[in-house]
Structure formats: structure tokens, C-alpha cells
Amino acid sequence: MITSNKIGKMIEFENIQFGYKKKTLFNGMNFALESGQIYGLLGLNGAGKSTLLRLLSGLLFPQEGSIRVLDYDPVQRNPSMLSEIYMLPETPHLPTLTDKNFVSRMARFYPNFDSSYLESLLKEMSVPRGQILTSLSLGERKKFHLAFGLACRPSVMILDEPTNGLDIPAKGQFRKIVAEALAEDRILIIATHQVKDIELLIDNVLILHEGNFICYQSLSQISSAIRISQETNRPDSNSEKLLYTEPSLGGYTAVWADTETNGEHQDLELLFKAAITNPEKFTQFTSGVHKL
């Protein structure tokens, strides 16, 4: 079931240079993603999230450096590699076909396609059947596409804003389905602004800021290195350990760089806000925390 060569480093960026026209986005980017993990790719608009995902799926070519995905060069667009990658875009543009026709057209390109798994997923998410896909609501289309993508059993599953357009029960189903989909020989990458929706799902936090990772750590490790406190008075912003503060109901919520705390204090949203509000200070902090 699990082939050993698929375990370990699945995605590797080496010294990647990429930019649009005059603006350089990535300048010597290096990182590797390992199998059996869920990565949360966070960042503001224009931080380079989509570009990164497009580089690794071969939709864009790096100007310099090399990318390896499952031991393929994505630029070659090898069918064997493509059948192991599924990218769910933020807005699914599905053709004017019924679910059945869509599956009969598309599934044959994916050798691992599992139709009974698709059926069970569609049932679980109560996606209406037998209709033209374009007549479904955004949420239903996203659920259908998610189910189809997972049923292709790809090694690399990329989800771009997967919870956008899902209602609250659907978000719960989404979490269960993604939790179930993680396997030892698989990577899931979730790029999103909806930090709260993926907080419970991800192993690792990658925060992109202006083409650089200002956070490239496991969520548990970074969570153990911070302390979140409720303060009555606004904390001194010059304090070296203060990463972020925001007004809250009873005063102020403060995020501190504090490795002495016991246990994990996990609040991905606060962490993300801390990172993008003061990237320099945050980078300084994360550089001291064990990287992936």
C-alpha cells in the first residue's frame, strides 16, 4: 500500500529565483516539504503563495534554481507527476457537465482513482447528485471538487482557500475529511487566509512575507515557544519579548516570545497576526525556534 520511495522529502526548492516583469518575488528560496504532513501556507495577498504553488506544480517555471517534486522536475510536466498532484483552486471552474460525465471524462487520467471513495465522500458531504456542475452553489462545487481531487489519491494535494464559501457544518466536514485523507505517503498543502479553519489540521506553519518564509516551523514547536497572556494594561511595546498585542474584551491580548512556558499555547490566528504586523521582529524570534 505504501511505497517506501514516496516517504521523506517529497518537494524540494533549491535556490529558486522568480519574479514578474521588474519585481523579484523569490530570491534564492530554499525549502523542503516532507510526506505525512499537513502544511499551512499563510500570507497576505501578493506574498507569493499562489506563485509558490504554481511553481511546484509546473504551471510557472523558475528563472533560476531547481525544483523537485516526487523526484520529477515540474517543468517537464511529466504525466506521472501530474497524476500525483491535485490542485484545488479557490474557485472551481468546473465544466458544464453532470457529475457523472465529469468523472467519466477526468478519472481516466488518474491511475489511482477510487470511485467508491468518491461516492462515500460525496455522500458524507451531501453534495447533490445528477446535476450539471455549474448549476451547483459555490460551496457544493467546492465540496464536489474536493471529493474528486481526493478520490484521485494524489501524493501531493494542494488546497487553495478550501474553506472559502463553505458554511459552518461544511467546514466541520472539511476538517474530518482532510484529517482522514492524510497518509504517510502524502503531503497536503493548505493555502489560506482563513487561519482559524485550519488551525486544528496543520502540522506545520509556513508564513510567506514578500517572498520569504518568516515562519517555517512545526505548529507545536512554535506554539511551545510563545506565551499568550491577557493584560489589563497595554504592554510596553518596546519590550523585547513582546511579539504582538491587540485590544481584547478585558484589556489586551499579548503574544510573547517565551520558551520557558510549559505546554503549547496554540492560537494560529494570533501567531499569524504577530507575524505580519511586525515581520522583522517575528523573523528574529522564529530564527531561534527549531526549523523544519
Binding site: 505525512g36 472539511f174 474530518k176 484529517a179 492524510l182 486544528l200 489540521l201
Partner: peptide, 17 residues
Amino acid sequence: VREMAVELGVNPNTVAR
């Protein structure tokens, strides 16, 4: 681990830990 992760909608690795 998997059953618990699916039931709670959380990462299986977290449950395993």
C-alpha cells in the same frame, strides 16, 4: 489515531502525539 482524528476533525499527527 485515525478514527479519533476524523471524529474531532484534527490532524492525525496531533492525535498520535
